[in-house]
């Protein structure tokens, strides 16, 4: 469908001019319809992308009885059936009963998501801050200090970037069993630190090594040590890079299931994080959509807030290569 013939108008003649005008009009009409179709298709795609989440959100407010009898899209027909009850049940985990379709009273023991929320926080905050601290020190060392084997060691870190964490599960689990670290917060923090460090060190190095050397030299003339230089000067300057990585590591750790399953399960159910608790909820009572949906939304609350609040940094991080191997 080439339109090459249309682009070599012969000069002169009125006829030619009229033809050119009508052709222009035709092109612009096609352009407008094309634009309309494009916008419509994109809107449709966006709707399809958003509907599953909307369904979850609507269901989480619906009466359990209604959830099993009609689709969430019919919720608008009965706005009185919407309440925060599911959230109350899921957060507090209180006993709770209802009369089912056959007239029997059913009692349920709700899963307590609040404790899991606390555990998720206790796992995530140090698992974000510790690797940032460790990687920032290392990046400074690689960028500004001279020591034997410096390049070799950094090449090693680059090689580790894509190593899958599956490789570490069995040996580390055995070390943990020997050292009594299995099922402890410390064990999970260290694991997340280890798995996040290559990327963090690499990103921070890329950032810190581009800072002008003159900043450091003037600081040294003033008698500052490397340590003061690092904590007072470089850390604040490297904040954009640290923030980008922090968002990633936060989402990664908060949403992680595998590491929690492997290294936290040893402690029984008291230390379960949100993903584990949600999975238990789905497994034990997979048909209790009202609780499952409310629970899922509780687990998504913080990441979504971070996502909407810090989207710009998030995107910047993505473009800097913040994707873990």
């Amino acid at each position: 469908m080439s339109r090459v013939d249309e682009r070599s108008p012969l000069p002169g003649a009125d006829f030619e001019e009229a033809a050119a005008v009508s052709r222009l009009r035709r092109v612009s009409v096609r352009k407008v319809t094309g634009r309309l179709v494009l916008n419509a298709v994109l809107a449709l795609v966006c709707a399809a992308w958003t509907l599953p989440t909307v369904g979850l959100l609507v269901t989480s407010f619906r009466d359990p009885d209604m959830v099993s009898r009609s689709g969430w899209w019919s919720a608008a027909r009965d706005p009185k059936g919407l309440s925060l009850d599911n959230y109350r049940t899921v957060l507090a985990g209180q006993d709770w009963s209802y009369v089912d379709a056959s007239g029997e009273t059913v009692r349920l023991r709700g899963e307590n998501m609040l404790g899991a929320f606390g555990n998720s926080l206790a796992v995530t905050i140090p698992s974000v801050l510790i690797p940032i601290l460790v990687a920032a020190f290392a990046a400074y060392g690689f960028a500004w200090l001279k020591f034997p084997g410096r390049k070799m060691l950094f090449v090693g870190i680059v090689a580790l970037l894509a190593v899958p964490l599956q490789i570490a599960l069995i040996p580390i689990l055995r070390d943990y069993q020997k050292a009594g670290l299995n099922g402890s917060f410390l064990g999970v923090w260290l694991a997340h630190t280890g798995f996040g460090l290559p990327l963090a060190t690499y990103l921070f190095y890329n950032y810190i090594s581009t800072l002008p050397r003159s900043i450091l030299e003037s600081a040294f003339i003033d008698g500052a040590s490397h340590y003061t230089c690092f904590t007072r000067l470089i850390l604040p300057l490297a904040m954009p890079a640290l923030a980008s990585f922090a968002i990633f590591q936060f989402l990664w750790v908060w949403n992680d299931l595998l590491v929690a399953l492997v290294f936290l399960s040893g402690a029984g159910r008291t230390m379960e994080v949100l993903t584990q608790r949600l999975l238990a909820l789905a497994g034990s009572r997979g048909q209790d959509w009202h609780l499952l949906t409310a629970g899922a939304f509780v687990s998504m609350l913080l990441p979504l807030a971070v996502f909407f609040g810090l989207q710009k940094h998030f995107v910047r991080g993505l473009l800097a290569g913040s994707v873990k191997g």
Binding site: V45, C46, W49, T50, P52, T53, G55, L56, T59, L251, W254, N255, D256, L257, T275, L278, L279, A282, G286, W289, L292, T293, G295, A296, S299, M300, P303, L304, V306, F307, Q311
Partner: peptide, 19 residues
């Protein structure tokens, strides 16, 4: 809207899609 699911865990997404 298309980017939003990136903030959701695989487990959370599992619940959404089970539904």
């Amino acid at each position: 809207l298309v980017f939003l699911p990136m903030a959701i865990s695989f487990v959370g997404a599992g619940v959404i899609w089970r539904f």
